[in-house]
Design a protein around this nucleic acid. Sequence first.
DNA 1: GAGATTGCCTGACTAAAGTCAGGCATGTGG
DNA 2: CCACATGCCTGACTTTAGTCAGGCAATCTC
Lengths: 296, 296
Amino acid sequence: MDSVAAVRRFNRTVTQRVGALDDRYMARGRPLAQARLLWEIGPGGAEVAELRARLGLDSGYLSRLLRTLEGDGLVTVGPAGRAGGDGRVRVAALTDAGRAEWAELDGRSDDFARSLLAPLPGRRQERLVAAMAEVERLLVASLVVIEPCPPGDPRARVCVRSYARDVSRRFDGGFDPALSRPVHDEELVPPAGVFLLASLNGEPVGCGAVKLHPDAPAEIKRVWVSDTVRGLGVGRRVLDELEKYAAERGWTAVRLDTNRALTEAIAMYRSAGYREIEPFNTEPYAHHWFEKRLAQ
Amino acid sequence: MDSVAAVRRFNRTVTQRVGALDDRYMARGRPLAQARLLWEIGPGGAEVAELRARLGLDSGYLSRLLRTLEGDGLVTVGPAGRAGGDGRVRVAALTDAGRAEWAELDGRSDDFARSLLAPLPGRRQERLVAAMAEVERLLVASLVVIEPCPPGDPRARVCVRSYARDVSRRFDGGFDPALSRPVHDEELVPPAGVFLLASLNGEPVGCGAVKLHPDAPAEIKRVWVSDTVRGLGVGRRVLDELEKYAAERGWTAVRLDTNRALTEAIAMYRSAGYREIEPFNTEPYAHHWFEKRLAQ
DNA sequence: GAGATTGCCTGACTAAAGTCAGGCATGTGG
DNA sequence: CCACATGCCTGACTTTAGTCAGGCAATCTC
């Protein structure tokens, strides 16, 4: 397959060679990990747990790095500012010297970016920037992770609220959740069902749920994808995971209902093998009902 | 500047995040540096000096890495095969076990490339591949280095031969170097002049030379750019460097002659501030003569 | 309010990466 | 043939990165 070769060439030249240069720019005099951490803390400060998640570091290692930066007088680590907050969490903030160092890093990053553009004639610069944006956008698809999540989790709530907002904007006459058939959290917790969350670098960007009705096909609900990642196949992956969940537990069919305004969703269901069926519920906002038989 | 921000976003998400994933794929069980080295040696083997240049490693460190791979029975390092070659250079080659390991790495690289494409729907995959190719092509411009080189260097010879071949393909009736006004190597060695070589990862991809005539404008010769990097501003950069070289040594003008078939070159000269002048030599292949006054 | 959990910290490690100073054999220019 | 350069190698280091086990205090759960 030729496109695999093309991706490999890209990885080699761009992620490896350019990435190494980027690192070298970033870490002048200071170990790379420290520079990255300092950068990640930023002028606004950051909670330790967040830093750990963003940089993917071991708790002990991060702690030690923070101690080093503190020793150099660049960072202070103290209890979270907000009263009433969790007293265990600590926030790292930059000192004046740290802010200066951060500005230096920021400047260097700018320099490096400019050095990539500089050798190109003007129009090619624009094309490079456009192509980079495209690559970045399309590559995030492979960074989106889909995993089960309690429906009560704040990130799940964010998704469901966004879902309701999107839908009410698109339906004729809006959408009032109170009129729609209710879904209770307990129905989306194993073994009754599951709620899946799609996230990108920890940020929620999509969701979907399935209810495993006893003695009836499983029912798919609340499939939603943030428009920041729309068109990248995330919805389809969520749907696949939900079907897989139901199939593994013995269900042989899934159903769902949807509104005629959601044309892309309908197209996705059809292309995923769903067939339109007679109404199987009395959902007031639904115009179409679909079913798909699951291979065991 | 917004495009700088876009490049930085790209560097962050793509070179950093994807690059780190790539490394993790590459280095399973084995230290990354070893895996990279093994990969770089490849089934065809490679000279030690070349490996050092490609990977940018310290001589001692590389030697040690080779010793480790040798100890693991993956690599043999021996004197260069070619008789009459430099007896000091050594070549690393893969053993059977090394070849197997290499194939394993190769397979993993493929897997990783596929894993980037897989989550995307088909048409987006094509767009990603196209955008990657574009980014890669445009970014190599910033990896091209231009530096003085003795005109007798093999890489310089390669360029001049390519130049003659390109030109003879384009001129009506071909190009016979014997009929053209000759340029001797000594004229392109400081202080009489200079030969500049443009190279990408050590491979020659362009050249240009200037002769500093006493009591006459400096003369630019042999500006050539390989079509692998054409359109990326390399020719313009070579020209700038040549002008700078002449200006720094007190020359106040540069001249050159060119053939009417070389339309892009002519356009480049014009856009770089060259004005057409009366013939200043009797070059049989020239149709246009240009001059540019240099700011001191 | 006891017991488990969570968030951060420290100490004690190990492995990998990289540097530096020489050393030996080969090659090159006078 | 001498002096010097070059290509590779070894030994002796340092730094960076990262892991793991445990510990303390705050918080949550029952």
